[in-house]
């Protein structure tokens, strides 16, 4: 889970591995490294074959495609690391968008309206966390219920109609740019960097790993497990709401049907990036790399002119190959190390 480069330490053990090789080995062992290599290889291959892959507009288009998802990935990583997951993010994404649009149509100031959308997501997350920690309904059922509720709320308050006619000043977040980079991508980069640093280094976020690693041991080590889990779901809901707000700003329309199926795409990206469904493992950067991987494959299939009817099949196969390859290579490394030690 941790890739912190720290000098190897030897105590009473008999073998004293060379410091450099140990560091390199650990780097290679990290899921992120495998993924980065795969992503780079795919990028080079697509560029060589199509000649159109590594262009600024194309990379811009890919990044815009997963910018809002990247924000959701931060919260989902936390949920997966804590040993749960959040199936409601796609619906909360839509609900956050619908809420900000309604607030804007009610002529609330833009910052207040954005706050409404984000708060609405956080509220959904709070309800998830409350049910999971206090009533002790498992995360699958709780967030599946919220998936239905949040979607239902979005449909009911809009009567199924998309909401348009939003003020141009609001659209700048999703459509404007700074320093030649679209604002949406900048916001996503900030979310990823802040999220990754917090998950890696903040003492508060470190508790999430302990809770996911062994809940009872975490409790006996003095960690307030319920508070940690509650906070994780609030974070996940809040970020899904924020992503929904930004998506509305990009598309100028709040669609109550937006983000359906998003939860599975996000969970898949996180798993590709090294999260474990059993908890205790995963990094935000890993989840982002998973998204980039999926984004590259999707984009590559269009550039390679794979017929649309075959794209889903190809995507499924590539996903299984990627995770399968990684699992097998980790097992090989373990076996190789076991032989060396024995």
């Amino acid at each position: 889970m941790e890739t912190t480069p720290s000098a190897p330490h030897t105590t009473t053990s008999q073998d004293t591995p060379n410091a450099n090789s140990n560091f390199l080995l650990r780097l290679l062992r990290a899921r992120e490294a495998t993924l980065i290599i795969m992503i780079v290889l795919i990028g080079i291959a697509l560029q060589l074959i199509t000649g159109k892959f590594l262009t600024t507009p194309n990379l811009n288009a890919i990044s815009l495609g997963f910018a809002t998802s990247a924000i959701i990935v931060v919260g989902m990583t936390a949920a997966l690391v804590s040993g749960g997951f959040d199936l409601s993010v796609g619906s909360v994404f839509a609900m956050g968008g619908v809420t900000v649009a309604l607030a804007l149509r009610a002529e609330l100031p833009i910052p207040i309206a954005i706050l409404c959308g984000v708060a609405c997501g956080a509220l959904a997350g709070f309800i998830n966390g409350f049910l999971i920690t206090q009533i002790q309904i498992n995360p699958f059922i709780t967030t599946l219920g919220m998936l239905g509720i949040a979607r239902g709320v979005s449909l009911a308050i809009t009567q199924g109609l998309p909401i348009a006619g939003l003020p141009p000043d609001f659209l700048v977040y999703g459509q404007g740019q700074n320093l030649g980079i679209p604002n949406l991508i900048l916001i996503a980069i900030i979310a990823i960097i802040v999220g990754d640093i917090l998950m890696r280094r903040s003492s508060a976020f470190r508790q999430i790993y302990y809770v996911g690693g062994n809940e009872e041991a975490a409790r006996l080590s003095g960690i307030n497990v319920k508070r940690v889990v509650l906070a994780v779901y609030v974070l996940s809901g809040l970020l899904a709401g924020l992503a929904g707000v930004l998506s509305v700003s990009r598309f100028t329309v709040a669609d109550p049907g937006a983000g359906s199926g998003e939860e599975l795409r996000i969970i898949a990206a996180c798993i590709i990036g090294g999260c474990s469904l059993r908890g205790g493992k995963g990094t935000v950067i890993g989840g982002l790399l998973g998204l980039i991987f999926v984004g590259f494959i999707n984009n590559g299939m269009v550039l390679l002119r794979v017929p649309v009817y075959w794209q889903q099949l190809a995507m499924g196969v590539v996903l299984l190959l990627a995770v399968g390859f990684d699992t097998i290579s980790q097992r090989w490394q373990l076996r190789a190390r076991g032989k060396k030690a024995g």
């Binding site: 889970m1 720290s6 790993y209 302990y210 690693g213 009872e216 041991a217 006996l220």
Partner: peptide, 11 residues
């Protein structure tokens, strides 16, 4: 109830 088995000694 005691150990975080899949985590390092440090953690």
């Amino acid at each position: 109830a005691g150990l975080f088995l899949e985590m390092s000694i440090r953690l």
